[in-house]
Structure formats: C-alpha cells, structure tokens
Write a protein that binds this DNA or RNA. Structure first.
Lengths: 210, 210
DNA sequence: GTCTATAACGTGATAGAC
DNA sequence: GTCTATCACGTTATAGAC
C-alpha cells in the first residue's frame, strides 16, 4: 500500500516514536543526564536510527525543548489575550487549565526551569511570548482595575509570579513536599485538585490586600 | 609552625577549597552536567587531589547535597519550632529570612529540586525535617487558629506550599520571568525586596479567604 | 600532599551490510 | 530505513614519581 500516511498514524512512525521517547526521557532526567541509548530503548528502536533521523542528541533536544516551551506558554499567552473574559474569569481559567495540564505532565515545569538555567537562552528569544503577555488584554484590564481602585497597585509581574507560583510550584517541589509533609502520591493528587478551587479565591484575596 | 589550624583558616585548606568550588559548580550546573575538571579548575587545584580527598565525584556531591539541604531547611524548621512567636510573626520571619538567603544564593532551590527529581531520595530520609515540621509549634498554632475561626480550615500543607511558593518560586523561575517580563537583573532584585514586605500581607489575606 | 601520565570506561556518532 | 559493529572522544579515577 503506497497510500500516504494519514495524521492518525503519525504517532507510529519511527520518527514520531523517537520524539515521543525523547520527550519522556528528557523531561524526566534533563539533557545532561540522559543518554541517547536511554531514548532509543524507550522508543524500542536502534540507537543508530536516532542519529539517522535527528543527526544529534542536541538537535533532538532542541526540538523537544521548543515544543515543550510552546505547549507550556501557549495556554497562558492565549488566555491572557482573550478580550472576551473578565480579569477574574481569566484567573480561574488559567489556574484550572494549568493544574489539569500539570497533573498529566508534572515534570514539565522543572524540566523547563532546570534547562533554562544553563542555556544561553537563544531558544526563548524565538518564543515571542515576550511582549505578548506584557501587552495583552489582561495587562490592560489589570491596569484599569488598579486605576479604579479595585485592586492594590502592585507591579503586574508580582501578579504573574504569584499566579504561577501557586499553581506551578507544588509540582516543581513535589519530591520535597512529599517528604516534608509525609504525603503519598494519591493524597498529593487530591491536594492539587483542591487547589483548582482555592487558587482563584486566594489570588483575589491577595490582589485586594495591601 | 606546627600549630593546629584555627577555624578561621579552614577555608584555605585544600579540602575546603575543593568543597567550596564543588558547591559553586554543582549548584550552577547540577550533578550530571558538571565535570570534575570544572571543580578542580574552580578550586585552583589539581584534578587528582579531588579524588585524593573525596574518593569520587559522587561522594563529593553527596556531601554538598546534604549540607545544602540542611542549610535550606534549617531556617524554616527552626522558626517553625519556635514557641515564643505568634503565627503571624513566624510568617514574617520565615519569608523575610528566606528571601535574604535566596538573594545571596539564588540557585539553591532549583539545584535541590532538580537533583531530587531523579535521585532515590535516601539522602532526604536522613534529614529528620520530616516530622519536625508537621509536629511543630507552628502546626499546633495553625490548628488552633482554625478552631478559633481565625483562618479558613485548609490543610496545613496548602499553607506550607503557598508560603514556599511565593518566596521561592520567583528565584526558581527567574530565567523565564526575566524574559516574559523583559526585566533586567537589577529590577528583578528590586521586585524581590518588595516581596519581603508583601508576602506576609498576601499570606494573611489568603488564610482568611474562603 | 601534590603533581603528571595514563588507564578504564561510558557515550555520541558513523560506516557499511542488509 | 534499519541493523551490527566500531570508532573517536571526553571523563572519571588511579598509579607512581616527587
């Protein structure tokens, strides 16, 4: 059958299998600690194929890194630029969507942050999330709310830090939290679900405080 | 002079120089990405001396890791167990002390968290911070405040997560935040100082919200 | 204790048969 | 496209002179 492969089958392509495996292993161990052999094994393919399709470990990594960053920032960036929703609604949507995302792929934030630490962040410059967020519909609404005295006059970066901190940090710190708090995986999951309700409430309280 | 070295001089010992260098490099790059040669160079000593004093890269790493974790958790653990201070005062002291600490060594949390990710956490088990926090004076005060209706009935781990998130996360995520927010290092530092004042205010507002 | 030289090993990448 | 075999190199660790 010389029929062109349809999209559904893309995941079973050798190339796709390698990418999927690379994603898993890189996310779990980071660039320096993963061996190309780990990826090949995870993908169930031969080591040579990795270089055949992607030329080098680094090239493969760059692809995974870029896609991961895009996936991670896309959800905020989009909702920040949605001019149909109120400030409060945005907070609910973002934190809820993020926690759902992180329950599925809890290693992503730590992966991104630890890789960004050493890398001369050329990769990031390409993601034009930069001014997309600071000039977003959200930013406008935020400044308006301050002018109207609805929220305390705090730098918008504090807001972004706080929102991300409350949603993302527990996943980044989970190994430590599980030990400090002596919490099992299942219980930890329950706490995260609770946070979906609480974070918007907490954030709103914070924004008014001064 | 066969006089025993006094404490002040300990830092100039070869062994101490290696440890100090190892701390710097491991914190910056993590275990997998650092080469013993990097440490030797940073310490200004010969590579062979590293193995002479510490037997292996891994043994040296374990020492740094343990000391770093202890330093990082000591400050919370101590204040949590201080029964002379009120709940509110504890929050102020902890967040302020932490931010001061992190301004000096901003790489520490990311180092700890990324190394903890892969490691079978035998190291952590030794730190008996485990039940020290959950059975602390703070924990008692926290439960009392809930009973007295002073704060919303939320699992104490949520509180710990929130306090750590607000103080620690900006340092963990700083590379990303600097790009998203287009912030220079100097401005970032100013934001962190602002947070010393704000975090206790925010936390108190959150604790009452429901 | 400190150095140089080198051994022993792991890992990324490729050549070449199929 | 996929495999086996192997190269080339960097890195950890040690032997042995000083």
């Amino acid at each position: 059958m010389a029929v062109k492969k349809v999209k559904k089958e893309l995941d079973t392509t050798t190339e796709a299998k390698i990418k999927a495996a690379a994603r898993v292993v890189f996310h779990k161990k980071g660039f320096a600690a993963t061996r190309t052999r780990d990826i090949a094994e995870e993908a169930g393919i031969n080591l040579a194929l990795l270089n055949y399709y992607f030329r080098s470990k680094e090239k493969l990594f760059d692809i995974i890194m870029l896609e991961t960053m895009q996936g991670f920032l896309k959800s905020i960036a989009m909702e920040f630029n949605n001019d149909k929703t109120t400030l409060e609604k945005k907070i609910e949507i973002i934190s809820s969507a993020y926690i759902d995302l992180l329950i599925v792929e809890p290693q992503v934030p730590l992966f991104i942050m630890s890789e960004l630490r050493s890398n001369p962040n050329e990769l990031l410059q390409n993601l034009n999330t930069k001014q997309i967020i600071m000039n977003s519909a959200f930013a406008v609404q935020y400044q308006q709310a301050i002018k109207q005295g609805k929220i305390a006059p705090q730098h918008i970066l504090h807001f972004i830090m706080n929102l991300m901190a409350l949603t993302v940090f527990p996943f980044v710190a989970s190994p430590m939290l599980k030990i400090i708090g002596d919490v099992k995986d299942e219980h930890f999951g329950k706490l995260m679900v609770e946070r979906k309700k609480m974070i918007p409430i907490w954030i709103k309280a914070m924004m008014k405080a001064k």
